[in-house]
Write a protein that binds this DNA or RNA. Sequence first.
RNA 1: GGAAAGGUAGCUCAGCCGGUUAGAGCACGGCACUCAUAAUGCCGGGGUCGAGGGUUCGAUUCCCUCCCUUUCCA
Length: 675
Amino acid sequence: MLRKILVTSALPYANGPLHLGHLVEAIQTDIWVRFQRMQGHDCIYVCAEDAHGTPIMIKAQAEGVTPEALIARVAEEHRRDYREFLIGHDQFHTTHSPENQEVTYQLYRAVRAGGHITTRSVRQAYDEQAGMFLPDRYVKGECPRCGTADQYGDSCESCGATYSPADLRNPVSALSGTPPVWRESEHYFFQLGRFEAVLKDWLKTGARQSQVRAKLDEWFEAGLQDWDISRDAPYFGFEIPDAPGKYFYVWFDAPIGYLGAFRALCKQRGLDFDEYWAPGSATEVYHFIGKDISYFHNLFWPAVLHGGGMRMPTAVFVHGFLTINGTKMSKTRGTFITARRYLDLLPPEPLRYYFAGKLDSGIDDMDLSLDDFVARVNSDLVGKLVNIASRCAGFVARGGGRLAATLPDASLYDEFTARRTAIAQLYEAREYSTAIREIMSLADRANQYVDAHKPWALAKDPARSAEVLAVCTQGINLFRVLMSYLAPVLPQMACAAAKFLGDPLSDWNAVAKPLLGTPLGKYEPLATRLDPKTVAQLIETPAAAAIATTQRQAGTDSKAAQAAVATTAATIQDFGKLDLRIARVLAASFVEGSDKLLQLSLDLGGETRTVFSGIRAAYAPDQLVGRYVLMIANLEPRKMRFGVSEGMVLCASGDGPGIFLLSPDAGAEPGMRVS
RNA sequence: GGAAAGGUAGCUCAGCCGGUUAGAGCACGGCACUCAUAAUGCCGGGGUCGAGGGUUCGAUUCCCUCCCUUUCCA
């Protein structure tokens, strides 16, 4: 039965580049879409740029460009990154489009006519200098609970307290630095609570992820609150109809961007919008999202659709986050790997394969371990999979370049093709990791087959050339089945293999019939090994790079590496990786529970850092306050029992006792670079 | 602060409802082979299944406490 399916992945926000976290989702979605198409289903994949909101407006101002120019530029970068990762969107649109405005107004008017909108006055921080209301994240101050400085207006990073900007002590606007004033303004609210029953029914439909369901139950229990969907001018977005000076909150028209993008596609292709979105539609609609936006997609979004007279999604597929080498992505650690950085160094398919090998239908986080990445890709893709074709192709070429007319081991071939139903179910259920395991164990079987029949030995006897061809025909056919199974993950390699095989590999069930008697194209390497050195370059902090260089020079033993630092010549580039700065000690104190450390608060010229330094034996805290010191400003932050140390203060020491702080000559100011 | 998921061989991970000697891939050691991008095949070493309690004839698997990691909180 032919299915009509519409699939989306979450809209990337137009204020920054794509990173590998975005790609987890895009790759998960793209594999699913390509798989559905191989099944012969009509599967459309749309996405769009999430282009509205205060952050975009501010960023554009800061860059001295219009928001339109900013989002156009970023969208182009995003488009290019997706394309190079072989993400096959049918449409990549933008929420700042006439189509999206049209659908947004349509839904809003319907929701309002249904009585689901209410208004209420809201007291909010207002920046008089900037002339605008401030979102929570744009108000900073001291945490009302623990007093930590420089916290956002919604929660404290230090103690985890959540509160509103009005609760902050000594609040200031992040835009102008002036204290905000509090003003009342009328806001529009979507009454989510009116949809509780509808949503609960909707969530019972289809197979939902248990963890997601548990979270939703929690939210239901807490009670569904009205959702503030309006923002005051100035705002970059759509003005609310009949409400001058009021704009739709970016999160209102962002999911509607799925519809806007699809409507634009309908215009291009002459598709029927209502066939997909009218209530009771028989088509399937799926959203792939990260778990951070589950609330929006499982509550607000279906409620808006329902209230707006449209159908709700068939299901929302939630995935976890990406960590790098076991920890979360971090700019200071250099593990914030952008799509562009990856693409500048490596081809896309190894990462697609690696992610596929770890993705399942759960919402657990996934780790990209760089060592594992190299090992996995080189072993599976090159050593096992491609090797099958590579080791057979030569014999076929020498035997006339044409596959034999029959398979010597039809039952082995049937075993391979018989797995296609089970593997298809795994793809369908988004259990890619299990699918990949299955496929790779078949690849092992294929290599075992070739090994057992030793075509290279047979080839020594010219009289047995038919046997050689037969064995290799078997091998090539097993390879073809495997490549077909992997085509959703590795579209480019499948395409190259298709050229070699003279068979399109575009139909999931085509492998039911083996490829016999047909000529083979010239064999060219289908994948190359990853170089660990190149992969290591994905992570690039200046400090990490310097350490990596030292370790490479000194061997793997890190102790040896440390000892070798003094004797190994450093290049000027190595030195340039260290960001040495002048800092002034603002405060110093003993650290309870440590007899070596002092906690220092350092002024870096506009920035304050906390550093733990093992100089207690040599310096008393009050000796240090006001002193100028040298620090490494880009040292990887280190979590200690007492807190996070964000740098290192430089001291001299010798074999004997004594630690001696370094200081600049008079005239140096905090923040100055040392070179 | 509230909550969720995870903690199984050096690494990345499988292990359904509790039950005989806990698995795979990679890495490591040995052997074989040489067609293949030093690829492949065979054999092997290696785990007190985060810690401590409890339930049970029996727990990696259930319950409690603690520790660690990641994440979410409209």
